[in-house]
Design a protein around this nucleic acid. Sequence first.
DNA 1: TAGGATTTGTGCGTATGTATT
DNA 2: TAATACATACGCACAAATCCT
Lengths: 231, 231
Amino acid sequence: MSTDPVRLSEQQRKFTQMYQALRTRICLLDYAPGQRLSEVTLAEEFGVSRTPLRRVLGRLESEGLLKSVQSVGTIVTDVDIEELTQTYQLRMELAEMIGRLSPVEVTPDLVERFRSILRRCDELVRTPDPRRFAQVNMDFLNVLLDLTENEPFREISERLYYRTTRIWIKSIARMDLAEEMQIFRREVADVLSAVEIGALDAVGHIRRSHIAMSFTRLRQGKAREEMQVSA
Amino acid sequence: MSTDPVRLSEQQRKFTQMYQALRTRICLLDYAPGQRLSEVTLAEEFGVSRTPLRRVLGRLESEGLLKSVQSVGTIVTDVDIEELTQTYQLRMELAEMIGRLSPVEVTPDLVERFRSILRRCDELVRTPDPRRFAQVNMDFLNVLLDLTENEPFREISERLYYRTTRIWIKSIARMDLAEEMQIFRREVADVLSAVEIGALDAVGHIRRSHIAMSFTRLRQGKAREEMQVSA
DNA sequence: TAGGATTTGTGCGTATGTATT
DNA sequence: TAATACATACGCACAAATCCT
């Protein structure tokens, strides 16, 4: 009688597919901030009419990743320094909560997923690459969010991450990439150590400090850029 | 050259108007959880076609207040006890942050807005009424959010509030309403005292404890209801 | 079991508004 | 300054799916 809740309807699958594809492209900088997207082109690519595609664009707009302007186009948003600062401050505070909000029991499978991330970090240290880094960083976030069962917390953390991560990635590509890869590898290694002994509160503290330091470096990098631009 | 950012386009105004109207109706229980809404009826009421209305419904769906089901209708969501618990836990932690995230300077105007809320509480204590209580509670939240300039924090706090407040209101209507009015009045009075001396960190602590106690009472009330139902 | 009524989802043509030449 | 090109916003008709008789 009732449909299997695990099996989503075709329209939902299609929506999710388009949504994740576009979000990934935006966060991996395949679509740069300021770039204009075409509804008709994207609709053709995904094999749907403009209507369902616009639904997806509307969702991405509500999350601050796109902005539709009448008669102009659908534009990938940029993030100004003020909003970046506020978002990072909030993410810092949120990250620390993870050990307090419905932490899951650490399974061997979960540990293995962190180890897998660490191995990919090792590759990145050997051959740095901004795009692959962005991908690993995204996957790292997803494993981290699986440390808690608090769904609203997961939603919000994900939302805030996607809001600003591409700005960080963009900035990193202009900084000392090799150094950033080593710093990130160390963060993953620290988190893995904490997860292995089930110390999820420690994970929160590690994350908090790394988010804080990332933002400091990002801000310094941006300041350097602006000096070069004005020079 | 550039358009005045204060003056929104007609479509944006219309969107906001419809969005806030529907959200308010849902949160004031004019639309009860489980109720089915009609796209055509609402579109007619607001004097637009289904297309722009569906945009609004999509936004409310992304915030978890509605759920559109193919061929069935657009249904006001309910919130199960698990999600309610998780949301309240998160809101507790978030509430405490307000003093740490870009607190504003307290102006006489701001204090007056809190005093205004307190006066409306006095009326509520004299003549309790669930719907008017819901309205004052909503306005109280909005003044509270004006204590910080951290926009992502404001967005998220608002989102989480609207997600669950109607369940609380529904529950309160079946509890000791007069007692709840007095408790709420005390919270507002406590917050006002803290605001008057500029102690925004204290506001955070007061809010945290009140959210925690509200949830405890809500859970007890729901437990009592279930016992009556099964009896 | 089947068919009709109803409601959301989709496709497409047109309206509206912006930017550029 | 005006006209033209172009992209999103909107309205409507139809398709698809569910529920009830």
